[in-house]
C-alpha cells in the first residue's frame, strides 16, 4: 500500500534526448530568414512504464538559457 502511494508520487525519468541543430533558411514571407535553432525531443517514462515524448524548438538564446540551467543543476549536485 505504501509502495503504491510512493509510486504515484514518483516523477518520471528522462530516458532519451535527441537533438538537431538547424537553420530556418527561408519561408513564403521571407527569402532569407537565416535563423539557427535547436530542435529537441525528450522522452520521459513514468513508473508504470508509460512514455511521454515532447518535441520543441529553441532559438540559440533559448538554448543557451536551457544549457546554463542544466549546468547549474550539475554544479549543485556535485557539491552534495
Amino acid at each position: 500500500m505504501e509502495e503504491d502511494v510512493v509510486s504515484l508520487l514518483q516523477i518520471g525519468r528522462l530516458i532519451d534526448v535527441q537533438w538537431t541543430l538547424g537553420v530556418a533558411v527561408s519561408s513564403n514571407t521571407c527569402k532569407n530568414i537565416n535563423s539557427p535553432f535547436v530542435a529537441m525531443a525528450v522522452k520521459v517514462q513514468d513508473s508504470s512504464g508509460k512514455v511521454v515524448s515532447k518535441s520543441f524548438e529553441l532559438s540559440l538564446m533559448e538554448f543557451q538559457s536551457f544549457s546554463r540551467q542544466m549546468k547549474d543543476i550539475a554544479t549543485v549536485l556535485e557539491t552534495m
Binding site: 535527441q18 538537431t20 541543430l21 537553420v23 519561408s27 513564403n28 530568414i33
Partner: peptide, 21 residues
C-alpha cells in the same frame, strides 16, 4: 492558404538526421 518554411540541418543526434534541406 499554404505557408512553408525551408530548413537545413547542420548536425544531429538522432535517427532522422537529414542531410538534405
Amino acid at each position: 492558404d499554404l505557408e512553408w518554411r525551408l530548413d537545413v540541418q547542420l548536425a544531429s543526434r538522432c535517427l532522422h538526421h537529414q542531410v538534405e534541406p
